[in-house]
Write a protein that binds this DNA or RNA. Sequence first.
DNA 1: AAGTGGTCTAGACCACAAC
DNA 2: TTGTGGTCTAGACCACTTA
Lengths: 246, 246
Amino acid sequence: MPPKNTQPKYRQIADYLREGILNGTFPAGQPLPSEEALAKQFGVTRPTVRQGLTELRASGLVEVIMGRGTFARSPQSRPSLTRPRGVRLAPDGRYMEADGIQWTNAEPPVATRTDAPLALADLLRIPPGEPMFTYDALQTADHGRLRQLHRTYVPFSVLVDTKHEEEAPLPAPELYVTLAELGHELHFTEYVRTRMPLPDQAQALRLPEGVPLLHVIRVTLTEGDKPLALEEFHLPGDDLELSFRL
Amino acid sequence: MPPKNTQPKYRQIADYLREGILNGTFPAGQPLPSEEALAKQFGVTRPTVRQGLTELRASGLVEVIMGRGTFARSPQSRPSLTRPRGVRLAPDGRYMEADGIQWTNAEPPVATRTDAPLALADLLRIPPGEPMFTYDALQTADHGRLRQLHRTYVPFSVLVDTKHEEEAPLPAPELYVTLAELGHELHFTEYVRTRMPLPDQAQALRLPEGVPLLHVIRVTLTEGDKPLALEEFHLPGDDLELSFRL
DNA sequence: AAGTGGTCTAGACCACAAC
DNA sequence: TTGTGGTCTAGACCACTTA
């Protein structure tokens, strides 16, 4: 038996379209041929065409607008926004993000208490299960065009013998002032990961199909590298890059 | 007419399975019910079940092994590897990656000349179209368990009046020595992006379905912030995180 | 051999957008 | 009204894995 070296039809269709999108035959923003037209062109039925298109959607190369058509997305172009990561200490004792973005909470932030899951306990060097103050916020800027999910964790143990023992501290950037007032010189480490969003994350961040998340964990440390607090950021992976000075 | 508030069947199936994966009903590494079983359970046909499973695949929650079944993937757990980003200058004048990983080229690296595309010309502050030395390598470490795509760009203009005017310089880390010998004190900025891989990238990095890429651009600069060279890294987005000290 | 997922057909009917 | 994509059926046959 000769080896089978033919690709499945739906993949040939996907390859044809991807090729066209990357080489400019199907320019970004322009509609692809309709599913019906592709079915006729390739001599297959519509479900087969759709199977190919599903691949392109999952890889973010294509965007579907209901009732209008399937559109090529700009692929590997430059992100429109670069966010320098860092925290600056102003002369007045306040802290500012290096990117200078002014966020507002889309909804009132949710303050709760969480027991530290293993992964976070590890980064905070506290026992798993230790209670933490938790802040949860969906933040927007630039009239809703920028979005991020922001979560703050402060272990109870960090705040014993302070006025915050019973009352939740404010989230960053005020949190940094609170921590600095405990007598520490703060510094920060960030951990960057990526993954595909869950449906609720995709909705909150208005992510198109096939667009991953950037997941940033920022740990606030003392000068002696003792972890004080942890923040989680979920950022849209399209049209955004982070920059770090090494 | 009452508003239609029923989810499509395939999405109900996807939600049911995703829920089960996240809450432990379907533990990571364990097989989900077969497509046939799910079809019977939900009273639908197999294509409908598969449409739901396609969603979970694209979001990386599920892995399919041909002939064996569909398996839950560990979702948001901690990555097994943290790579501190940075470059260290050893006393002997050599440079080392902060993560200490020793990479070997899976295949001989490909040296070519490229004309600077707009996005890279911008970061290197050279005119678009200026020729650059280019190195391309698929690197592995830890017996092939770690993989990264590495590309180096050095504009011709940086190397005029040096012995490398005609002969391509070696890629990093030797490149840094070469650049330092031009009399510069080097520093580095990294830009982090994410996106879904193209098929060839997914294959080279052995990425499972639904796993995004980390795309890191490192620019080597003089003490006066003049860009000298640029490297691109494509890293698997699962099971890996980058860390940066701010 | 039995069980799994992979590919594909040939339709049907619906929801949405533009004209 | 027409054209687009969205959902779903009821199969068929194939390829791969395990026993």
